[in-house]
Computed example of a mutant assay.
Amino acid sequence: MAILKKLLFFTALLLTVLLSGATGYSLIEGWSFADSVYMTVITVATVGFKEVAPLSQTGKLYTIFIILVGVGLVGFSLSNFTAFLVSGQIQEIFRVGKMQKRLSKLKKHYIVCGSGRMGSEAVKELIAEDRDIVIIESDEAVYQKHQSDGVPSIQGNATDDEVLIQAGVERAKGLLTALPTDMGNVYVSLSARGLNPDLFIIARGTDEASESKLLKAGADRVILPYQIGGRRMASILVRPEIVDFLDVMTGKDELSLRMELVNVSDSSPLADHTLKESNIRRETGGALIIGLIRDGSDMIPNPDSDAQIRSGDQLVVVGHVDQIKKLEQMAK
Rank of each mutant, 00 (worst) to 15 (best):
T43V: 09
L215R: 11
S115N: 01
E277Q: 15
P152T: 04
V112Q: 02
M183H: 11
H109Q: 09
R231V: 04
V321F: 11
D253L: 06
Q155P: 00
V74M: 12
S87T: 14
Y25F: 15
A158R: 00
Y110R: 10
V74I: 14
F49Y: 07
K98Q: 13
A141R: 00
V264M: 05
A158P: 09
F200M: 12
F200T: 13
D313L: 04
P269W: 07
T63K: 11
S36P: 01
E29W: 09
K252H: 15
S305K: 15
K107I: 06
L255F: 12
G218R: 03
E51F: 12
L315I: 11
R171P: 01
K107P: 07
T43M: 06
M99K: 06
D198P: 01
A128F: 11
V151M: 05
A83M: 12
I28M: 08
L61F: 14
V112R: 04
L275I: 13
D132R: 06
V318A: 13
H109I: 02
A53C: 00
A128E: 10
Q91S: 14
R204I: 04
V169N: 04
K252R: 15
L327V: 02
R310K: 13
F94C: 03
Y143G: 09
L85Q: 09
Q166V: 02
D220Q: 08
